[in-house]
Design a protein around this nucleic acid. Structure first.
Lengths: 109, 109
DNA sequence: AATATTTATCGTAATATTGCAATAAATAAT
DNA sequence: ATTATTTATTGCAATATTACGATAAATATT
């Protein structure tokens, strides 16, 4: 026991949870913010920008990439990471729809 | 090793991560959706609605409450849970601002 | 008072996550 | 070719999360 029982939830619930989870770490938020801000988008700067080990950053980048939130293209010896435009749009729509699912009503609590 | 190093990130990055993490589980997405949909908002239905044990649901509710996303008022023997209106608004603004921080530019990747 | 109903908490097992050193892999520079 | 530079992967160790049975706590019902 101790495994998330994804099979009992809807596709949508799992999809939302996966997207949120991919972002649910301060390092990954920081990475995403940094990538958004940097127009040049060559990375490796991340290691000194955040105070984490290179292996740790690489791991977080992989998670973001697996979730489809960023994409990376090899640029010689380094890698250029940037936001995945289409998927980020989908993310905004999916999460936005979920968050806007709440309409305040004064009947409750 | 193995502990999230919150001290090296900004308040904002940690705050966003905590909020996302609170929602980053299909059971908690399902609970939030159910609470949003039910006008009456008396719960305990959740146990049969989702297929999880009562203790597990209670644990997830506690997490959502701790994060400030829901509030619960005692209603006799049962508890009435509903979305925390002000905090949900803040959540939308915080997460929204983060997600909208990306402006597509064709200079990259 | 005794019993039922509902939610919270505790204890525990299984698994997942986080972080880093060490090392590999792959290209660039000398 | 050899040496740097940069990123990925592997292999741990420390913690955190998820789930559930058992039990406690608190109010309703009989």
């Amino acid at each position: 026991m101790g495994v998330t029982r994804t099979e009992i939830f809807t596709e949508e619930q799992n999809r939302i949870a996966v997207l949120l989870k991919a972002m649910a770490h301060p390092a990954r938020i920081a990475i995403l913010q940094y990538i958004m801000a940097s127009k040049t988008c060559i990375n490796g700067d991340l290691v000194e920008e955040l105070g984490l080990a290179q292996a740790t950053i690489s791991q977080h980048l992989k998670e973001l990439k697996t979730a489809g939130l960023i994409q990376g293209t090899i640029e010689g010896v380094s890698v250029c990471y940037c936001i995945h435009p289409e998927n980020w749009q989908l993310l905004k729509e999916t999460v936005g729809a979920f968050l806007n699912g709440y309409v305040p009503n004064n009947e409750c609590c």
